[in-house]
Design a protein around this nucleic acid. Structure first.
Lengths: 344, 344
DNA sequence: ATCGTTGTCTACAACGTTGTAAAGGCGTAC
DNA sequence: GTACGCCTTTACAACGTTGTAGACAACGAT
């Protein structure tokens, strides 16, 4: 049985509360007492029982981070950064995987199973705006990725439309004219995919290029296999594209694989660009041009927002002010071999 | 403020304990009472406060999973599986990243920061056997990956030596004779790397091939960049290898990249094999031959062992029986293009 | 009618912590 | 010498839950 305040108090010959005061850095304690207590703490190996502390304080010290799945390197990397950022603020992260299921996303915002948490950071995939209304208003919610979801949730995202436009402008700049896009998700409107496709469209329009619906490829998921399959369809067209913008890096990796399999040269015959800047793209053959969202900034902002919302006053748990915040994280275009850039 | 047992009790006109009994499925309750309580629960939206429950029960319901870092897809995938397995047993996983630092690994086994947890699953990298002695004996510990670490910890791993031998035998079977290995970690003896290198040696010996120390390449870490650098050194040798076994897939990806950069054909000039079966290797160019550990089995076994060790009797937290267990998970060789296998 | 027995429910204490309020010690000013 | 104030420490209650032990009714058996 681990030592408690009581054990330490006994050993130091003081009251429980005094030990508590020492532990919590209360100001008015004589050096002599403090020293005695600290020695007793060291001797017993005491460490506070966070469960009890949080019960008393009405906070749990946990935030939940819900991502579609850790298999996706983008989310894996992001999760790592969120954990690190949360640690700096003395928070512990519970990682949930929603598998992109609307049901599981809902479970997260309607108070996370039976678990009590102080805040939730959710990267929604399937969620519809209406789901948000059912969210537990007492638990601050931070949504990752833009969606036109009104309501009491904060948002952190890069400007997806602008970022997508930037990549496609780059493809145009290197002389491509038939620029396809992989990653449409019919049925899911307002999602990240839709924004990136809008960016593609904007760039084409700005350059006066025609907009060909057969160049907009829908996919079931954003996995390598989906990209590979979509690319196959593109290459089977009578007039295949000379560039492909994939809505994420995994799709691009799959697309590149299909091209390579068919002996199509990248970027010679077709240039390919992705989105997310996962580490994999820095070592693929060819290396992958991509949009690099500032993941660190995203993680930091998400945790920061959650932090700000958690009201430290007992009983007043909940969103601090009604105004919800939108944070725009920066992004950068990384030109690599797949669009004619330098090696590594 | 969320509703508590008290609120429900008041509404249902029964005692707090009766509500508790209903919630916990206590047997002797009249249908009428049960129905009344259940309605009150539904009306108030009551959900148990796990913090309080666990305080009372002396268990937290948390297990910590400590991996070097989530950037590494192997650990990301494994983490996902552990989370899923833990969920099935009503456990919540706290994910920690040790960054391969001995200090942080120690922090995990000596009771996880200030956090109380019921068990720990650790994937050690830097840890030395002596560190284990300082582990909190009350917290069951499951180590992932074999190391000759005696003591009260359970182990889950595949047979690394046999697996490595299997890959290298495969390289020999396709006619290679100068088979290098990337992934030695001088200084870290007993680690996973050492075992895989031993497997390499065994295969060479069994085939009567000479053992050339210049063909055993040390690396700082197991990242893509390390593999790339090591491969460069190999290709600079007067007599470069005709095959390279990399101790993990990331190293192999890096190695392949270097070879491709130099116009060396894979597997024509040099065959390359990895270890871990990360998804990336199924889409790289060429696709990567690798050892596929049964990650699901590993995750399941790890959670299962932790589960078994947690003594449900209050105050008796701790390892249930002194005998520590060793679980061997299965593995399989996946032959792909990088050693002359079929495409995908 | 009385006595157990069985089934159903409840009062109380405890888990380890912290907020509140107040008690005690000591020095200073009158 | 008394009153006051300050600094330091403490007792107590409370957070929401469950284990223990016992209360209370209803019932059948004696």
């Amino acid at each position: 049985m681990p030592p408690t305040l009581k054990d330490v108090a006994q050993r130091a010959g003081v009251s429980i509360k005094t030990v508590s005061n020492v532990v919590n850095g209360y100001a008015f304690i004589t050096p002599a007492t403090r020293e005695r207590v600290e020695r007793a703490i060291a001797e017993t190996g005491y460490r506070p029982n966070l469960g009890a502390r949080n019960l008393r304080k009405g906070r749990t010290g946990f935030i939940v981070l819900a991502v579609p799945e850790l298999d996706n390197p983008y989310f894996a990397e992001l999760t790592g950064l969120v954990i690190t950022a949360a640690h700096r603020r003395q928070w512990t992260v519970l990682v949930e995987q929603t598998q992109g299921s609307r049901e599981r996303e809902q479970a997260v915002i309607t108070s996370m199973g039976p678990q009590r948490i102080d805040a939730a950071i959710l990267s929604p995939l399937a969620m519809e705006p209406s789901d948000l209304e059912r969210a537990d208003p007492a638990t601050p919610l931070v949504l990752l990725g833009e969606r036109d979801i009104p309501g009491p949730a904060d948002h952190v995202a890069i400007d997806n439309v602008a970022a997508a436009r930037t990549v496609v402008e780059h493809l145009i700049a290197i002389g491509r004219r038939r620029i396809a896009v992989i990653g449409d998700q019919p049925g899911k409107n307002g999602g990240t995919g839709a924004l990136r496709i809008a960016g593609h469209r904007q760039a084409l329009d700005a350059a006066g290029l025609p907009h060909d619906p057969t160049m907009v490829l829908p996919v079931e998921n954003y996995q390598r296999a989906d990209g590979a399959a979509a690319m196959a369809r593109l290459l089977d067209l009578p007039e295949p594209p000379d560039a492909v913008f994939c809505c994420n890096d995994l799709l691009a990796i799959g697309a590149m694989r299909t091209a390579t399999d068919r002996g199509i040269s990248i970027p010679g015959n077709v240039a390919i660009a992705g989105f997310d800047d996962i580490a994999e793209g820095g070592y693929s053959s060819p290396t992958l041009t991509t949009i690099a969202p500032d993941k660190e900034a995203i993680a930091e902002a998400a945790v920061n927002l959650a932090d700000k919302r958690v009201d430290p006053i007992r009983g007043g748990r909940g969103t601090k002010n009604v105004e919800s915040e939108d944070v725009r994280a920066p992004f950068a275009l990384k030109v690599r071999e797949s669009t004619g850039g330098a090696g590594r």
